[in-house]
Amino acid sequence: MSEPQQSVVLIEDEKMIRRYVAMALSANGFKVWESETAQQGLMETASRRPDLIILDLGLPDRDGVDVIRELRLWCEIPILVLSVCTEEMQKVAALDAGADDYLTKPFGVPELHARIRAVLRRRARRDGHEENEGGIFEFGDVQVDMVHRRVSRGGTPVHLTPIEYHILTLLVANVGLVLTHRFILQKVWGPDYVERPHYLRVFMAGLRRKIEENSSNPKHLMTETGIGYRLVR
């Protein structure tokens, strides 16, 4: 590998899960620093300055959401959250506190790698390391031309409303990552609308009808129930 090795601080109290995540990460060329507690994890992060933090929300010593808030006070390192809990509220809280994405246990190795890639790619793009593909973004048979503000599907132009287009560009800019309802509502409609997720749902339904082959069984504009939306390539 010509690139310098990327590093991860893994904060997880369950030994078996820590072991297999570390195994999967090392197999993919990451340098992994393991921590058992939030306190240890914070110290590792401060001293190692990793490229990514993987944080379990159910740590014994501290509330995971608190840990994220504290990390965000002094670092911008991407955070991927692991949660065993099916409770969506906690994940939303973690994302709103500044986590980049989440995985619900049990998750497969391919899922883990896809998520890590998406998180790191967004970070790279934000830092200006990755080139944008000539302003044209493609997923499935859909093409989004960011420069000319044109969307087409299978070569035929698709007419979007300004709001639909705005939502789509947000999803494109964060491809592969979940965006919470709150985040999208705030970006597209403004802070007065954050308590009106039905607006987003209605517009997403419209967007799906225009972009997806089968709007009832979408392949790209995915719903994360109770959390938000994710664009999958």
Binding site: K105, P106, G108
Partner: peptide, 12 residues
Amino acid sequence: TPIAAMAGMADA
């Protein structure tokens, strides 16, 4: 948690 660990290790 243990089920998730089992699933994860089988996957790994």
